[in-house]
Design a protein around this nucleic acid. Structure first.
Lengths: 226, 226
DNA sequence: GCGGATCTTGACGCGCTCTTGACGGGTCGG
DNA sequence: CCGACCCGTCAAGAGCGCGTCAAGATCCGC
């Protein structure tokens, strides 16, 4: 199922697009301003983005630049402005197509198919954000404030289990079994050791963790961004 | 140099496009009808095609279909017909963009850049830069400071796997399997041997590698230029 | 058959990771 | 109010993984 993020501040257009895209087999999520669009994109990792340029909070090219910073998903721009300079600016900022309102819904869907056809081949990166740290599990890479953060193999194993169960509590037993082996049951000092290390490397304030939480007597939990 | 094939039966439009594209660094070839377009495309193998739909000898979608039979090069359609049904037909036939005449030349160039950006990455640019070394994977050739650098077959295999996964960590198991075979799991001394050799031949300071990095206990990583 | 290049194999030292133990503070129940 | 429990933190020894050097084995063109 192809995931599409639709960004528009006009409710009726948003609704029309959602219905039409969903009717053609797309999985649709929506946002009504630029800030929400960027958050939503990071959360759902869409395969394609339909973006209205006339948003209340941000300039359209800024939103495009913000998306292009980390994703190559095709961006199809909607806009009421038909001037060539606007189109050129948006396309050179990284948009893949530009459609002026009012638009024909059938044509828009055809253009969506066209850009999806081309961009679809690329698998999307499963990237997790943890505060100001960006974690790429597939590439085994952590960036924080531009700097590269190095994790040891044991730290990766522990972190991966927690990140693959977002919001869910993982018991100490399960963590010990999956990282150290089935014969480890009560070595909770290992967990304390490595959780502290992870928090030191990833949390803004290691002594007051926001994302790597302890559930006393039970286990640990990764809490994603709210 | 990006090769563009322009197809239009109106001489003045053809001329205007040729001049403007050439001025922006494209290598331009032209055709004035559908049959010639297909012959020309097969001859010059363009990276991008600008195609007028109103050709005298063939229907526009037939030309698109004829091209799509063997090439994935982006096709940007020009047309005097603004009806949605025409656009939908062309896009679904395999076109990547659709611009109605009369068009703004600046906008057209921006759309050319947009589709070229996306299509250009796919046909592979087989050349990778690694510090002062230039690596051509297709030609199996490395130049460094003008000098030719020789790599052994095993070195090539190892280097190619890393270069085809830029930024991504490749585990020692995967490297061993793909270079030496599935029965090799723990012969990490092979990897140490050949990685050292590659660094000696490619890195500016082999003892302090910048691009061919070790992730202790996990594997190796090729880091492209920052 | 000979010589050079390439691939395999072994060994050693050093730095980093993992392991292990101990201490103190916080919380909860008795 | 006190003790048990759990967690965070620190410290230090053990062990492993990596880079490096060296030498024997194997393949190839001439």
């Amino acid at each position: 199922m192809i995931k599409v993020l639709v960004v528009d501040d006009e409710p009726q257009i948003l609704r029309a697009l959602r219905i039409n895209l969903a009717a053609h087999g797309y999985e649709v999520s929506t946002a009504i301003d630029g800030a929400q669009a960027l958050r939503q994109a990071a959360a759902v990792l869409p395969d394609l983005i339909v973006l209205d340029l006339g948003l209340p909070d941000m300039d359209g090219t800024e939103v495009i630049a913000g998306l292009r910073g980390w994703t190559k998903a095709p961006i199809l721009v909607l806009s009421g402005r038909a001037a060539s300079t606007d189109k050129i600016a948006a396309l050179d900022a990284g948009a893949d197509d530009y459609v002026t309102k009012p638009f024909d819904i059938g044509e828009l869907l055809a253009r969506v198919r066209a850009v999806a056809r081309r961009g679809g081949g690329e698998p999307e990166k499963p990237i997790t954000e943890l505060g100001d740290a960006v974690i790429d599990l597939a590439a085994r890479q952590v960036r924080r404030a531009g700097e590269q953060v190095r994790l040891t193999p044991t730290e990766w194993q522990l972190l991966e289990i927690l990140l693959r169960n977002p919001g869910k509590l993982v018991s100490q037993r399960e963590l010990l079994h999956r990282v150290w082996g089935p014969s480890y049951d009560r070595e909770t000092n290992y967990l304390r050791q490595y959780m502290a290390q992870l928090r030191r490397k990833l949390e803004a304030d290691p002594s007051r963790p926001v994302h790597l939480l302890t559930e006393p007597g039970m286990g640990y939990r990764f809490r994603p961004e709210v």
